[in-house]
Each structure stands twice: as structure tokens, then as C-alpha cells.
């Protein structure tokens, strides 16, 4: 169950998206997120077409991507329900003191689409980019921040390690949960307070384990001569290729189109 979360995972395949420079993909994802907030109505169809095209290009099976969505269904529903009921406007239906408004429904639909597209778009980036490349890309993109004493390399390294350990810790959560269930722990029933308290037997071992792993890993990295970003060379240095130029042009066209559609056609 818990292992089905695919956000942040890498899916090995040989596609044009996999081969793109990570910096291109980060910029592209960023542009895509902006476009989602630019669109208002029909624009989402353009966003959908663009996303669908990218998914096809990525060669990542669609079910693999939707699996990642399952884990956020609750959050999604929650935001949508809140939006439906809490937006003032033309009342369509009334249940006691709750009212569903036309504006609320529209907003909920928009939020839902935005969130789904956002998750799919960003997970497309992580699915096609190894965490190490992703962080290399971030490191290079954010490199100028080094000048104002922001430890860009260290932040990037931390991110990449976090991504590597997410699946391990998820599996561990599953294991500890089962082990405590075997001791009669009950994670499901009871009110809010009881539920929070019932998480202690899960969270304490999980934190202990995470610290132990962090400690082990730090030792292992030191033993392999890691001493921060200075003096390091790269096995896979980033280099822009022709396809990246093409991708940047495509991104620029897409973003321009989004803005134009919004401003001119009010989509």
C-alpha cells in the first residue's frame, strides 16, 4: 500500500525525455507549473495536450504515473470539498447550513485539475531523471546563489540522498507497522487523540532508524573521501545538446502560447 507512492521515483527507460539535460527539464517543469496558474478555463485543454504528449514521449507506462496519484487522492478530495462548500456565490443546492455554489464547483474543478496536472508534471520530471542528475541540474541552475553564501552543493546533495532513502523508509514504515500490529497495536480505530497516540509506536522506531541510517551513511561517505563540493569532479558533467535547445524553444513557445491565450482569448 504505502510502497505504491511513485512520487520522486526514477523509472529507467530510454526516451528523449530521459536524455534531456536535467536543467532543461527543471526549467520546463517550472514553466509548466506557471502555465497551470496562467490558464483559466479552456487553457487546461492545452495543458492536458502538452502533458499527454510529454507522457507519451517519456515511455513511462501511464499506470505507473497514476499509481502515484492514488496516494494524494485524500488531499485532493479534501481541497475539492473545501472549495465546493466554502466559496460564496450562486447557490445551487443546500444541505442544512452547507451550500454548494456554482463558483465553488468551478473552483473545485479547477483546483482538482491543477493539482493532478501539477503532480503528473513534476513526477514526470522525477520519473525521467535520476535523483543525482536532478540535483546536479539544480546545483548548476542555482550555482549563482553560492556567491551569497548559500551552500547550494550541500542542499543538492541532501535532496538527492533524501530521494534515495524515501523508498527505503517507506518500506521500513510498512515493516514497523506490521510488527506493532503483531503486538496488538491498532492504527485505525479511535478518535483523533487516540489515533495520534497510536502513532508513537510507529514514529519513534522510524525516527531512530532514520537517524541510524543517516549516521551510517555519513560515515560511509566520509570513508569515500567526501568533503563537500569543492574539488569534486563529475562522472556525468552536464552538457547542453541540440535536443536541449529544441526543448527550450518548445518550452518558450508553450509558455508564450499560454500567456497569449489567457490575455487575448481569455481562456
Amino acid at each position: 500500500m504505502i510502497r505504491d507512492i511513485t512520487i520522486g521515483q526514477y523509472y529507467p527507460a530510454d526516451s528523449i525525455l530521459h536524455r534531456l539535460d536535467p536543467r532543461t527539464k527543471i526549467t520546463g517543469t517550472f514553466a509548466y507549473i506557471i502555465s497551470l496558474f496562467v490558464f483559466n478555463s479552456w487553457g487546461y485543454a492545452v495543458g492536458a495536450v502538452f502533458l499527454a504528449a510529454m507522457i507519451i514521449l517519456s515511455k513511462v507506462p501511464f499506470f505507473f504515473m497514476t499509481k502515484g496519484l492514488k496516494s494524494i487522492v485524500m488531499i485532493l478530495l479534501f481541497t475539492m470539498v473545501l472549495n465546493t462548500f466554502l466559496t460564496p456565490g450562486e447557490v445551487l443546492y443546500r444541505i442544512g447550513f452547507l451550500k454548494i455554489t456554482k463558483e465553488g464547483l468551478l473552483l473545485a474543478g479547477k483546483m482538482g485539475i491543477r493539482l493532478v496536472f501539477l503532480i503528473l508534471g513534476t513526477s514526470l520530471m522525477t520519473l525521467t531523471t535520476t535523483p543525482n542528475k536532478l540535483t546536479d541540474g539544480l546545483e548548476r541552475l542555482l550555482g549563482p546563489l553560492n556567491k551569497i553564501r548559500i551552500p547550494v552543493h550541500e542542499i543538492a546533495m541532501m535532496m538527492s540522498i533524501a530521494l534515495r532513502f524515501i523508498p527505503i523508509l517507506l518500506e521500513e514504515t510498512d515493516k514497523i507497522m506490521k510488527a506493532q500490529m503483531a503486538r496488538g497495536a491498532d492504527f485505525e480505530s479511535g478518535g483523533m487523540i487516540k489515533k495520534v497516540r497510536s502513532m508513537i509506536p510507529l514514529l519513534v522506531p522510524l525516527f531512530v532508524s532514520a537517524f541510524r541510517r543517516a549516521n551510517d551513511l555519513a560515515l560511509a561517505m566520509e570513508a569515500r573521501c567526501y568533503q563537500g563540493g569543492e574539488g569534486r569532479t563529475l562522472m556525468k558533467p552536464l552538457k547542453y545538446e541540440g535536443r536541449d535547445v529544441a526543448a527550450y524553444i518548445l518550452i518558450a513557445v508553450y509558455l508564450a502560447a499560454a500567456v497569449i491565450l489567457r490575455v487575448v482569448l481569455k481562456w
Binding site: I161, R164, D216, R224
Partner: peptide, 12 residues
């Protein structure tokens, strides 16, 4: 080291 998971840094 002993624990195979805790000494691998990269994801490939």
C-alpha cells in the same frame, strides 16, 4: 560496512 542500504549514496 555491514548494512548494504546505508552506504550506497546514488540511486543508480
Amino acid at each position: 560496512f555491514q548494512n548494504p542500504d546505508n552506504q550506497i549514496v546514488a540511486s543508480v
